[in-house]
């Protein structure tokens, strides 16, 4: 399949590279397209669950985009939402079973949020906006790109919250004991849900001051 494509267009042409890199910055699913906020905030108190979550979302976006893109000409438009939901739900069940089998403790921490990947708007959003109208290979790239863009924000938020909230990174202590002796304390506030929102707000602020074309009217 890919050989046929290569004749017409190189596998990583400039357009295809854009599909992969745009979501990392100026077309980020979380901070620009406002998709998939729910799960992004809830799993970011520690890096490890955030990493597992990001990986699961990348897997699901990639394969959902691929499957829908392959079937796009056979799906009647009236029932497309149901078809998309069935594809996504089956992929999520697979991911959930794999997580339960290999990283049980993390899957317990993520609790309902693995299931909520089904209604994660990133996936539905990309299926509707991209996979329904494009060939399989660009759709895969779009899925990977958007999954990565989501993962990057997740990891930044989780890094800040874990470092300042528990003084650890990936479970290892990084803040030296000496700091605690002279009176440094972990900021327990960082662990609490509202801080995730405020950190994402600050990320948006930084990103938009560097890319002024993203600034909204009001």
């Amino acid at each position: 399949m890919s050989t046929v494509k290569q004749e017409r267009e190189p596998l990583f042409s400039a357009k295809n590279r854009k599909l992969l890199t745009n979501p990392l910055n100026i077309d980020n699913p979380i901070t620009v397209q406002v998709l998939g906020i729910c799960s992004a905030l809830a799993v970011t108190a520690k890096i490890k669950p955030a990493f597992v979550m990001a990986l699961s979302v990348i897997v699901v976006t990639t394969f959902a985009n691929l499957i829908i893109s392959v079937m796009r000409n056979g799906i009647p438009p009236r029932i497309r939402i149901i078809v998309q939901l069935v594809v996504i739900a089956s992929l999520v069940i697979l991911v959930d079973q794999v997580l339960k089998a290999f990283v049980y403790d993390v899957s317990k921490q993520l609790s309902v949020f693995v299931g909520l990947i089904i209604t994660n708007c990133i996936i539905m959003g990309r299926l509707e906006a991209f996979a329904m109208g494009n060939k399989p290979w660009p759709s895969i790239l779009d899925g990977v790109g958007n999954g990565l863009g989501y993962g990057v924000i997740l990891l930044i938020v989780a890094f800040v919250r874990e470092l300042f909230g528990s003084g650890t990174i990936w479970g290892f202590h990084v803040i030296p004991e000496a700091f605690y002796e002279i009176g440094y304390k972990n900021n327990g506030f960082m662990i609490l849900p509202p801080m995730a929102l405020i950190i994402v707000g600050i990320i948006i602020w930084i990103q938009r001051s560097r890319n002024p074309e993203l600034i909204e009217e009001n």
Partner: peptide
């Protein structure tokens, strides 16, 4: 502040 308008301030 400009870059915070809309989405950013809503988050905060």
């Amino acid at each position: 502040p400009g870059p915070l308008r809309g989405l950013g301030i809503t988050f905060i």
